[in-house]
Each structure stands twice: as C-alpha cells, then as structure tokens.
Design a protein around this nucleic acid. Structure first.
Length: 242
DNA sequence: GCGACAG
DNA sequence: ATCTTGTCGC
C-alpha cells in the first residue's frame, strides 16, 4: 500500500480514483505553508504537451534566472501517458513524467511554478502541492481556470487580485495578470505561504497573461512536441536570444 | 436532475 | 490538453 506512494512513476497508472483520493489525503498532512526561507535566484516553469490522438506525453521544465526571468536551462522527457485526465487528479497524469524531467537537472531550481494549482484544490492537493511534498521542493501553482472555491472578479488593472476561499479557508488568489484578460489563479504549493505565492507570481509577470515560468515551459514543451527541441538536459548560453 | 469541472 | 480563422492592439 505504502509503496504506491513511494513509486508514482510505476504505479500511478494503475490507480483508481478512490486510491488516488486516499493518497491525496495522506500527502495533505505533509504540506508546509510557512513563509519561504532563503532567497530565490532561479525559478522553473513546468508543463506538458500532448498529441491529438496519441499516448505520448512531452514533459518539460525551463529554469529562469530570478528576478531577471531569462531562460538558463531546460529539461525535456518523452513518456507514455497512462492516467486519464480527471478534474482534481491532474497530478497523477503529469507528475510521473515531471519527476523524470526534474531528475535530469544537475542543479535544481530554487522554486517551481506549475501549470495548475497548489492548495487551490478541493482537498488542498493540486499538482504543485503534490509535487512539492513528493520531492520536498518549493512550489506554487498558476492555473488558467478556477478549479475550486469562490471569488469576486478582481479589478481591471494589471496586478489587482481577490481572494479565493473555500469553506472558510483562503486557498489562493484570482490575479489580473494583464489588462483586458481573464484572471489567473495563484496558490502556494509547498514550503511557501499564500503571501509568498502572490509575491512571486507578481514578480514573474511581463507582457503576457501567463507568468514567465509557465509561459516559457509551455513554449518549450510545444517546440519539443513539434521536433524543434530534443529530449534531455540542455544548458542555454547567457547570451542566448531566448 | 442540474451545474462545476486545473490540463 | 489540442485543432482553427480572423481580428484587435502594442
């Protein structure tokens, strides 16, 4: 039973929703939302890309300098998908591949931003939180749509935000990341506070709706799927025009 | 039964 | 998630 939790890459594909729920409830007790310690010098964005009708998963992470936000390295891994997409269980679909992606980094990033939620989740265990607890890393989530909770629409100015609450708990923020766009949903994953997640997300905003880490991860992973980038760990030169 | 529903 | 055409704005 416990080995299911220890080896997600080999067992998540066989899980039932009931078993997955038990794992989330067990991991929940290990989540750390205390203020982040230490300075962030690098932040990674994580994402996956899929083919239309294929089992292939193209997963990747891009490490950016912080607060400059320039890509300095990236890791790409191709795997076969096993777990289906079920709202609330995204982690079981993407984490096996992302663990392999993470393992390829000779030097780990100080923080990782996921394309999905942290504690902004019915059981407070979105993909960012799940990955953080599993690997004991500092993580946060940035989703493009609301998964759980309630919120009021934030003001139209870039940087305005409102709280997302659920059953009396504040579980994240609806952030207007750019003028005239729908808000994105920010929440801490692991080893950082709600305030930390907002501070970091805000500092990662540039000209686009999505913060640079996840925007870059999405970009790189798509280039990987279309063949423009190759699998493996790659270090970018400082003068690279990325 | 009717909505809600990360990617 | 992915597929698509046009359109608006910097």
């Amino acid at each position: 039973m416990d080995n299911i939790i220890e080896t997600p890459e080999s067992n998540y594909g066989q899980l039932t929703i009931a078993e997955a729920t038990l794992i989330q409830e067990k991991l929940r007790a290990q989540v750390n939302l205390s203020p982040m310690e230490g300075e962030i010098k690098t932040i990674a964005g994580a994402d996956i890309s899929l083919d239309l009708n294929s089992e292939i998963v193209y997963a990747g992470m891009v490490v950016l300098s912080y607060p400059d936000l320039n890509p300095i390295s990236y890791s790409l891994v191709q795997t076969t998908n096993i777990f289906p997409y079920v709202p609330g269980y995204l982690a079981f679909r993407e984490i096996p591949a992302l663990l392999k992606v993470y393992e390829q980094f000779p030097v780990k990033p100080d923080c990782i931003m996921f394309d999905g939620n942290g504690i902004l989740h019915k059981r407070r265990l979105g993909i960012a939180t799940h990955f953080g607890v599993l690997t004991d890393t500092v993580t946060l989530g940035c989703a493009k749509k609301k998964l759980a909770g309630n919120y009021a629409d934030p003001g139209e100015t870039k940087g305005e935000y409102t709280l997302v609450t659920d059953k009396g708990d504040t579980i994240g923020f609806a952030l207007r990341s750019k003028i005239n766009v729908k808000p994105v949903f920010i929440s801490p994953g692991h080893r950082m506070s709600l305030r930390d997640s907002m501070d970091i997300a805000m500092k990662c905003l540039r000209k686009h709706r999505l913060p640079e880490p996840t925007r870059r991860a999405h970009e790189f992973v798509n280039k990987f799927r279309t063949g423009e980038l190759k699998e493996g760990y790659h270090k970018l030169e400082q003068w690279s025009l990325f």
